[in-house]
Simulated assay, not measured.
Amino acid sequence: MAEVDSELVVETTHLTKIYQNRQIALNDVSLTIEPGSVLGLLGPNGAGKTTFLRLVLGLHRPTAGGVRVFGTPMTPNSAMLRRRIGYIPTNPQFPKGMTPITYLDYVARLYGLSRDTRKPRLANLIRAVDLLGESGNSISQFSIGMTARLAVAASLLNEPDLLIWDEPTHGLDIEARRSMLELIKKLASEKTLILCSHNLSDVDEVCNHAAVLAQGKLIFQGTLTELKGRIRKNHYELDLEGDQKSISKAVGQLKAIKDIQQVTLRQRRLDLKLSEDILNSQLLASVFNILNENKIVLVSIRSVGQQTEQAYLDLVEKEESRGFTRLYSPQAEAA
């Protein structure tokens, strides 16, 4: 068992945090994160996400349970363990009187990096986050996007094995957000990441695992595919290209297939609802054959109701409903 545990990047066991003996911020959370995972940490405001991150970082002591990082217990005194973690808080703040070069050099010296090590690494990171042209300018003049890129550079200075980034795309414009997501994809090939985000389309794009917190409890942990698989599967939207007459003919043929429950055409977008108990690949093959016979080009196909946002909302709504039932159920009171 110990050998398996040592392979985990993060392992929490019955992790609980109660503030001032009255606010239960985290309640009995047992979670594991394997090497190479890009975990999306999800949950409504007040769900316990920030508390969870602080406990993993050893910034707070748990009320009960524990955290192991790289197989070693994490505590407020685990400075050497934290050196293997790169952290970005929400809305990172930097000393306004410093430049990217002076700030990163200062952080590198805090890590104990020698001059020969920190100077080339600092230069490489400034170039990697596209701040070379701003490297001598005051941080006080930085935009939100530039500040976010500086935070990325600072979190990578010590070449950490685990990255914990809290809302890394918060407040970024479209171009800066796209740049951040591409960087996350690149880093995911060599590091383990925990991303806390309210932007579920970001999670959908870059994460391969998810953990969902609600009212301090862990209500889901698994792959992103498993999360999306919890809700309706056999509903699709197809964007088509072709002669309108041919498309109309194809729609008529699709309506004749008994296991296709609903066929709706809006302009050149086809909405299909299939029987839940049918093998969808077999039925979709028939759909594609009909499109091909009518010389219709399939531009795109999307599964409706399987995006991360929809799955997440469905999960939280069900948990809230169960919580209400537990609270007012006579059986629950008797138990």
Rank of each mutant, 00 (worst) to 15 (best):
I231A: 15
V304G: 11
E293L: 03
N137L: 15
K96T: 13
K119E: 13
I139R: 15
Q282P: 02
S138R: 15
L213V: 01
T325S: 12
A153V: 07
E182A: 15
R54V: 09
V206Q: 09
Q244A: 11
A332Q: 13
E317N: 15
E34C: 11
E241V: 03
D161V: 13
H14R: 14
K49D: 00
Q23Y: 05
T169P: 07
I24T: 06
H235A: 13
T264P: 09
L31P: 08
Y312H: 07
G48Y: 00
S286R: 05
A148N: 10
L31V: 12
T75F: 08
G71H: 10
D277R: 13
A335K: 14
R302C: 00
I18W: 01
E276V: 08
I126Q: 14
D202F: 09
R109Y: 00
H14T: 09
G171F: 01
E205V: 04
H170V: 12
L279E: 03
I219Q: 06
L59M: 04
I247D: 04
S140Y: 05
S286N: 05
F52E: 07
E320D: 14
A334K: 14
Q253I: 09
G252M: 14
L157K: 07
Q215R: 03
N27H: 00
Y312R: 12
A334F: 07
T325K: 13
N27C: 00
E319L: 07
G46H: 02
R54Y: 11
A188H: 03
H170Y: 09
K96L: 14
E320L: 15
Y328F: 15
G36N: 01
G65N: 04
R84M: 04
S37N: 14
A334S: 13
N124F: 06
A176F: 08
F324T: 12
N77A: 13
L131H: 11
G305F: 10
I247K: 05
S286T: 06
E319I: 06
H209Y: 02
K49C: 00
S246A: 10
Q310M: 12
F324W: 11
T90G: 08
M1A: 12
Q267E: 10
V251N: 09
G66T: 10
R84K: 08
T72R: 14
A151Q: 05
L227S: 04
D202N: 13
G71L: 10
L291E: 06
Q20Y: 06
A148F: 05
A250P: 03
T223G: 07
D202C: 11
S135N: 13
A332Y: 08
L313R: 15
I278V: 08
I101A: 01
S6C: 02
T225W: 01
R82P: 02
T50Q: 00
L42T: 06
I126K: 12
S30D: 01
L227T: 05
L113K: 04
M146N: 14
G46E: 01
F324M: 12
I126W: 15
I260A: 01
F94P: 02
P120D: 01
A250C: 04
R109T: 02
Q23G: 01
E175P: 05
G71F: 11
A47N: 03
L213Q: 01
N91T: 05
S281K: 10
A211I: 03
S143F: 04
A211S: 01
T63Y: 00
D271V: 00
R266C: 03
Y106R: 07
E319Q: 13
I85T: 05
Q261D: 06
Q23I: 07
L104Q: 03
I290E: 02
P44Y: 06
N199W: 09
A64E: 09
I18A: 02
P100A: 01
A332F: 08
